[in-house]
Design a protein around this nucleic acid. Structure first.
Lengths: 224, 224
DNA sequence: ACCTTTTTGTTGTCAAAACAACATTATTAT
DNA sequence: ATAATAATGTTGTTTTGACAACAAAAAGGT
């Protein structure tokens, strides 16, 4: 393992190669190789490791429930990914796919971020709480951004509903927003949104009754 | 200080009142009282403390460069605020104002989140890096959301330019996006944005030349 | 200097979505 | 049960901003 290189990445800045090696060994870091196209993680799952690209490149890919694909980001050598999910208990809403033959370093949050010698157990718990808080909030913010970047009202709704389906692991699910709250969340007008929902129902894309929604028309592939 | 209460807040979950007291004393936590309307922090500054509301309530307020005010959030008893800025080196883009007579607990990030006994100094550095990373990302995400929640193109531009002015502490500043990048960031069409910029120039709100912008006409309110 | 490519600005058209106003259906209280 | 209130759906009008197509200016290369 190239500790010198790793010690220059964002997470290990300030540590020497030797110190980095020490941390990695006591954190049970793991390395794995991926062929182009192989999945590193899948949307809908939870993870407990931070990932760093040692070789190659990774695409962070978003797939909605109707199968539309969108590459959100390309992560290259030295860059970290999945760190927010690794710090929270939220499910992933993207897939990570090797864009080419790649080597990925996996670091267990549990080992890496919570001091190994529990000298100051109180602090350790506070640190844990804080990471959980920041990580979780980050995920929620990213999710909101991903649901509101589309310029079209229908796409925003699709994005939101797709996530609900993923989260609840079912194409039939209940949402916790009322219409006004959902409109606010998606940054759109309530009546326009209601109208668009009607149209989507007419078009056979979805069905709903009150706050229960069904995603239909799934001839199109879903989530791989 | 009501350690029992504090031990039930997000940051101290899992700690007993006694453990919480221990952490707070070794973290040099400070308490301060505020009258209604007093500022707890100001937009444009940096902070090194996490804040928790012990009594009263706090408004997180956003002011754009033209003076329009917008209450983004109300933080009540037991809730934490400013934690992301405290974990990053980014400037605040909101003000925190006491909504009523309030008591605020200030916790130094430095003392609180980096273990007091430097038994495992390597880990300590990694933790620091990780907090910096998560906190900074958080701020950037929030900033983007705040610039894109407005439904109007002009308001989005105003929001973005206002922040630039705050960040660069000047009503004349250079932006690091080209037009296409800015449009992507604000989730709008480039040509529509260019057009709106022209109109804003005609309306005397701003002036610009290439990537240098001036905010003008600071008396006029907009978009009320 | 010249040509090529990229970036930015301008204009007109059109569709999408905001907005307004009201109808209908739930929900809650009395 | 009935009235009152809130939430949701529907329709028509108006406005905004996306989109397309092109012009002008700037940047980069030879």
């Amino acid at each position: 393992m190239d500790f010198s290189f790793i010690s220059k990445t964002e997470l290990f800045i300030g540590l020497t190669a030797v110190e980095t090696e020490h941390v990695l060994s006591c954190s049970q870091a793991k390395i794995k190789n991926y062929q182009k196209g192989e999945y590193i993680y899948h949307s809908g799952n939870k993870i407990d490791t931070i990932c760093i690209v040692l070789l190659g490149g990774v695409h962070i890919v978003y797939n909605d429930a109707w199968g539309n694909e969108n590459i959100l980001n390309r992560v290259t050598r030295g860059q970290m990914f999945a760190e927010n999910n690794a710090c929270s208990d939220e499910i992933l809403f993207t897939n990570a796919v090797a864009a080419e033959t790649s080597t990925i370093l996996f670091l267990y949050t549990e080992k890496l971020l919570y001091p190994c010698h529990a000298i100051c157990a109180y602090h350790s718990k506070v640190i844990r709480n804080m990471f959980l808080s920041l990580g979780t909030e980050n995920i929620k913010l990213k999710r909101k951004i991903s649901h509101t970047t589309s310029r079209s009202l229908r796409q925003r709704i699709i994005s939101f509903l797709s996530f609900q389906a993923t989260e609840q692991k079912s194409f039939c699910f209940k949402i916790n927003f009322n219409r006004q709250q959902l409109a606010d969340y998606l940054c759109v007008d309530r009546s326009a949104m209601s109208n668009e929902l009607s149209k989507m129902k007419k078009d056979g894309l979805i069905n709903y009754e009150k706050n229960v929604f069904w995603i239909k028309d799934l001839k199109v592939k879903y989530g791989v």
